[in-house]
Structures are given as C-alpha cells and as structure tokens.
C-alpha cells in the first residue's frame, strides 16, 4: 500500500531535527508572527525572511524540491485572492480589461495586496512545512501539549495521525475490490458504488472508534490521559531560539 506520510522526512539527522520540538514550535511561531506583521510594501523584508527560511531548509538536509512541491498547497488560496482583490479595489488604475460587457480595472493597491498576501502566505506555509518535516509527529504533539494545548485536542490529533492511514487503506482495499469486479457499467453506476463505499467507510470508522474506546478501557482508561516525555532543554536549543529571534529582529530593523 502506498501513501505519503505527513512527517516522512522527520527521521533524517540534521541539527534542525535534533533541536527540542518545543523550541522549534516557539521559534517557528515567532517567525510567522514577524512575517505577518510586516508592512505590506516592504518586499525587501519578505525577501530576507525568505532567505532565512531557505537557509533553514538547506540546513535541515530535507530535499528543497519536496518542500517546494508541498508548498504548492498555498496556490488555490492565493488564487482566490488573485481572482477578487485586484479587480475590486479603489486606487490608481494601472490598466483596464474588458471581459465581454464587464469592465475590469487593475489598481496598484490591488496588486500590492495580492503580492503581500502571496508573500505572507507562502513564507508561513514554508515555515510550517519545515517544522512538520523536521519533527516526528509524536514529538510535535508532545511539544504542543507541553506548551499548553488542551489534552482533548491533542488526543484528537493523535488519533487522526494514527488512524487516517488505516482508514485510507481500508478505502483503497474497497476500491481495489470494486475495480477487480468492474467490467464496464455506466458512469452513474460507478458513482453510486462510490457513494456506497463512502457510507460503508463511515460506518466502519464509527465502529472502529467504539472498539478503540473499548480497548482503551480494557487498559484502565478513566478519562484522564497520561503521557510522559523526555524533553530536556540543552544549550543548543536556547542558542537556536536566540539566533532565530535576533535574525528576525534584524530583518525587522533593516
């Protein structure tokens, strides 16, 4: 069975991978805060933030190509902005288009908003991808738990990570069984079969959830989640946090 894993590069060994997950979560959040609070016309700063994050990517030994591929998720969202903002904003008109009877005006301010949101969204997404790729998911969960995320949300995330592939595999198996018996048939029939599969999958998932709960009870689960972690802050971690904040501050002051 084939599937891509959220944290498939998290087993590599680089300095970035070794940094305490809590420190990574904090520094990357700070990075995002700096990026999104940058004034919209400071494209030099966006460039420098970009250099910083690309530096970190190279430092992490994760292939830049794979990170680039993942970062494309941001496109559909910015495309929405692209479709709306430049055409419905007042300001200095840069050009006019005619789309049939529609008269569309592109303004300088509109383009600026587009560029600004594209840069901010892309830098933040790169940062998140790097965080997830360089940290094991279980460590990431522990880190956000220590940083105060409620345990219920934590458990939901942890179950999602544990079972999403199981459910996906169940779907793949059903799909294969269907394909193995699909010889012709109308398109409508195929869609009906798919709808049934989704329904079956839902019921199975529901039943599985009940069984998992029973298995938890069988091992003494009483509603309280107990976990242990072995995080230990080292000098290198604090150093990393300081370097991150210093470089962000200096970009800010450029």
């Amino acid at each position: 069975m084939k599937h891509t894993f959220i944290d498939q590069y998290s087993h590599k060994e680089s300095l970035l991978h070794k940094i305490d997950p809590r420190i990574k979560v904090i520094s990357f959040l700070v990075f995002i805060l700096f990026v999104i609070s940058t004034p919209k016309d400071s494209f030099l700063k966006f460039g420098l933030y970009g250099v910083l994050i690309i530096g970190l990517i190279l430092f992490s030994k994760i292939s830049p190509w794979s990170i680039f591929k993942r970062s494309l998720v941001v496109i559909p969202f910015t495309l929405m902005i692209f479709l709306f903002i430049p055409f419905f904003k007042e300001g200095v008109v840069m050009g006019t288009f005619f789309l049939g009877p529609l008269r569309l005006e592109v303004t300088y301010e509109g383009l600026q908003i587009l560029g600004n949101s594209l840069a901010k969204a892309y830098l933040s997404v790169l940062c998140m991808i790097l965080l997830i790729s360089s940290t094991k998911f279980s460590h990431l969960l522990k880190a956000v738990e220590r940083l105060g995320l409620p345990k219920v949300m934590l458990l939901i995330l942890s179950f999602m990570y544990r079972y999403i592939f199981v459910i996906y595999e169940e779907f793949l198996k059903m799909w294969q069984v269907k394909e193995a018996r699909s010889v012709g048939g109308s398109r409508l029939f195929q869609i009906k079969a798919l709808a049934n599969m989704v329904g079956t999958l839902f019921i199975r998932t529901y039943e599985r959830a009940e069984n998992v709960y029973l298995a938890m009870c069988a091992r003494g689960f009483d509603g309280n989640i107990r976990t242990i972690d072995n995080f230990q802050l080292r000098r290198g971690d604090v150093f990393f946090l300081l370097i991150m904040i210093l470089s962000l501050m200096s970009v800010r002051l450029v």
Binding site: F137, S138, L141, S158, F159, Y161, R162, Y163, V166, R208, N211, V212, L214, A215, M216, A218
Partner: peptide
C-alpha cells in the same frame, strides 16, 4: 483483542 489495529492506538 482480536483486531490489533484497534488495540494499538497511540502514535508510537
């Protein structure tokens, strides 16, 4: 349990 998939529910 019969189905180990349900019995192993933690990330590691």
């Amino acid at each position: 349990f019969q189905d180990s998939e349900n019995q192993l529910f933690m990330p590691t």
